[in-house]
Amino acid sequence: MRPILMKGHERPLTFLKYNREGDLLFSCAKDHNPTVWFADNGERLGDSMLLITASADQSVKLWNVQTGAQLYTFSFNSPARSVDFSVGDKLAVITTDPFMGVTSAINVKRIDEDPSQQSGESVLTITGPAGRINRAVWGPLNKTIISGGEDSVVRIWDSETGKLLKESDPEVGHKKQITSLTKSADGSHFLTGSLDKSAKLWDTRTLTLIKTYATERPVNAVAMSPLLDHVVLGGGQDASSVTTTDHRAGKFEAKFYDKILQEEIGGVKGHFGPINALAFNPDGKSFSSGGEDGYVRLHHFDPDYFNIKI
């Protein structure tokens, strides 16, 4: 499995996302320029339609994918951290960081079909959790919003009223900051990654903890294969202490686990900094990883991968 190295960013990667058809891969980095690539050969593109990005410059932007044109800018008074479109693309959930006395918040915006009619008003604003909310995604039928962040608690909110419906059990839940959260293809379950060196699989409707994947390093990114019962965890030793030790100490590997047995089945090395972002192609035949080292590595699986038996 020879990865395609995509060097289009000059700063650490922060997020990766495939479009629904799996032919485009979008990457975000700290260099302010979201980039889109052809997912099969890694060439930069420049037939999804709409892209939404969140940025620490206190804005969230809507883009036309084909032209790269900015359609609309939502302005906030604190850095925006994550975005997610609802089913049907009519709503977007945006999380904003605590900043200069402003608390962190989950904002719901209505996305108008006609960009010129787009309004900046929030349909709903939820505040409450302490610290950053690193991810917020839509629950089944857009009825709930699931969030996870610095306070290590997973929460489910009512997306109509903003009422807190459920909180993860602190006994079994994460012990440190939740860095990433990703839904399964059908939205029935989701995976959270945390600096407590574990990833956990939850039922979306009941917030029941189903599985825990323990690793040796803080987890910055998680992904679930849509094809096989595999999950991938990425991360590594904190970037600030990387240079103090041997490169092997960092363990900047993408680790594959059997989703059901919770056992490690393999790893993909290559990055020389912690992995910050992971995404599976919706077809399950390739995945990509983005690192603190500024590279996006696009991996097409070897045929052997599909025959792994344990």
Partner: peptide, 19 residues
């Protein structure tokens, strides 16, 4: 999950404007 997903199918379709 499959059962729930199936149950909610029509509702999802509605959210997608019938797509």
């Amino acid at each position: 999950w499959k059962r729930m997903h199936e149950e909610e199918k029509s509702l999802r379709q509605m959210l997608r404007d019938g797509e």
